[in-house]
Write a protein that binds this DNA or RNA. Structure first.
Length: 428
RNA sequence: GCGAAUGUGGUGAAGUGGUUAACACAGCGGAUUGUGGCUCCGUCACUCGUGGGUUCGAAUCCCAUCAUUCGCCCCA
């Protein structure tokens, strides 16, 4: 039986791996500029960490977690998301006692037991941020701003920001009552899923795809009519700041998000490209979740965050044929003719490597052809050729495949050519 | 959890019951070449995801199973 990778997981090699690290590096650099520092938490947590934070009834808890008992019969879960882990850390260590804001970013694998499909895997990578402390609409706006900057900097286009408010506890409670009243006598017209949602979480009926065209959906009560004044004002102020930051956004009145912990503003950044299979996929999503601290038996902690799906970003970069992430390849192949030249070539190769250059020499071949093949495989920029003539004169022939030049230089000039230290000769 | 499509060598694929599974690219071996990626010759699937069945005979039909991909639910 052949051993294969586990369903819904991915191996990255070559340019894929480069791209993955490029996204990490570019985005986390921006997070640092916004004053965020890294948090690294374990991949495993007590199952309760997610049950409490995400909500017993959420789909993540109900059917998507990798949960198992360890040898001590403790229920362990591979993290399906990071927000709960960061909150656990924050409350566990009583960091709420620290003055000012706490701003963390993270980057790492998450696990969700779902059927894989376009832009969705069982092990996937999230890059996200969490910000705790006194809430202020500017903070919410600036975090969206940061997400936008991250996405712009990795060169992902065709994105749009969608934002909505689902209000604070009071607003939402009133709204839920109104929704239930409205739909009470209309249940027969709704799809089976919505009948379940009606019981479980009426808000979710709003973004049902099946029933979205129905007239009764269009006429359903709107959250904005049930918002407490303070919630409404908070949301409007966020929008004002977004305008000031020059960010374009769409207000999606139907967007409610699936994780139970959100309060007030929620937002998504969506790939908007009708030609693509990935159209409509959220690459970034987040919002405010002021009530989560209490779930961890901590005080009320005002909090906001977002997460981005790294594999989704990679897929979109591929579609756009975006190759900005590729590092410039300035590697060198040393080609030799004859045994004396091979010895000289080894010495030369080693000298180049010691000077931080990527240099390779064919271990086996003596004829030209396979050695040129090596340089093609490496996609080497420089090819240095050493034969008997060069040995005799302490020279080498250097081809620059980018500038398409070929020059013969003395060994003593090599350091100048590559702007490196020291010198080399062929004597040994 | 539900629904659909697909599964032939490293890759792309032809082949729908009958002798040695076409072709292309890549690979490998060689010829030629102090400067290659051109050309030429040779070689490369005891086998068609896996396991059963039907048949004189199956990559081709049937069943099961696995995997991949896509959609739903939900989500980054």
């Amino acid at each position: 039986m052949k051993i294969t990778k586990i369903k819904g997981t991915l191996d990255f090699t070559g340019n894929e791996a480069v791209k993955y690290r490029y996204i990490e590096k570019t985005c986390t650099n921006i997070a640092k500029k916004f004053g965020f520092s890294e948090i690294i938490t374990p991949i495993i947590e007590q199952t309760d960490c997610f049950v409490r934070a995400t909500g017993e009834a959420s789909d993540i808890v109900q059917k998507e977690m990798y949960t198992f008992l360890d040898r001590g019969e403790r229920s362990i879960t591979l993290r399906p998301e990071e927000t709960a882990c960061v909150m656990r850390h924050f409350v566990e260590n009583k960091k709420y006692a620290n003055p000012g804001l706490t701003k963390y970013y993270y980057f790492g694998p998450m696990f969700r037991y779902e059927r894989p499909q376009a832009g969705r895997y069982r092990q996937f990578t999230q890059l996200g941020v969490e910000c705790y402390g006194n809430e202020n609409p500017l903070m919410d706006a600036d975090i969206i701003n940061m997400a936008w900057q991250m996405l712009s900097s990795i060169g992902v286009d065709n994105l749009k920001i969608c934002i909505n408010t689902i209000g604070g506890k009071e607003s939402r409670a009133k709204y839920q009552v109104a929704l239930k009243e409205y739909f009470a006598d209309k249940l027969d017209e709704l799809c089976p899923d919505c009948k379940v949602r009606y019981q479980k979480n009426p808000l979710r009926m709003l973004d049902c795809k099946v029933d979205s065209g129905l007239e009764i959906m269009a006429n359903a009560p709107k959250i904005k009519d049930y918002l407490e004044d303070c919630d409404k004002e908070y949301f409007d102020t966020i929008l004002t700041y977004l305008d000031a930051l020059g960010l374009k956004y769409e207000i999606s009145e139907r967007m409610v998000r699936g994780l139970d912990y959100y309060t007030n503003d929620v937002f998504e950044i969506i790939y908007d490209n009708p030609k693509s299979q990935l159209n409509g996929l959220a690459v970034c999503a987040g919002g405010r979740y002021n009530d989560m601290g209490a779930e961890f038996d901590g005080p009320t902690i005002q909090a906001i965050g977002f997460a981005m799906g790294v594999e989704r970003l990679m897929a979109i970069m591929d579609e756009a044929e975006n190759t900005d992430y590729l590092e410039q390849n300035d590697s060198i192949t040393v080609i030799t003719l004859g045994q004396n030249a091979k010895l000289a070539g080894v010495k030369l190769t080693n000298y180049l490597r010691k000077n931080n250059l990527h240099a390779e020499i064919d271990y086996a071949a003596n004829s030209l052809k396979p050695q040129f093949k090596l340089s093609e495989r490496m996609n080497a920029r420089y090819i240095i050729i050493i034969g008997e003539d060069e040995i005799a004169n302490q020279e080498m022939t250097i081809k620059d495949t980018v500038l398409k030049t070929e020059t013969k230089i003395k060994c003593s000039e090599l350091n100048k050519y590559f702007n490196i230290e020291g010198s080399i000769d062929y004597a040994y």
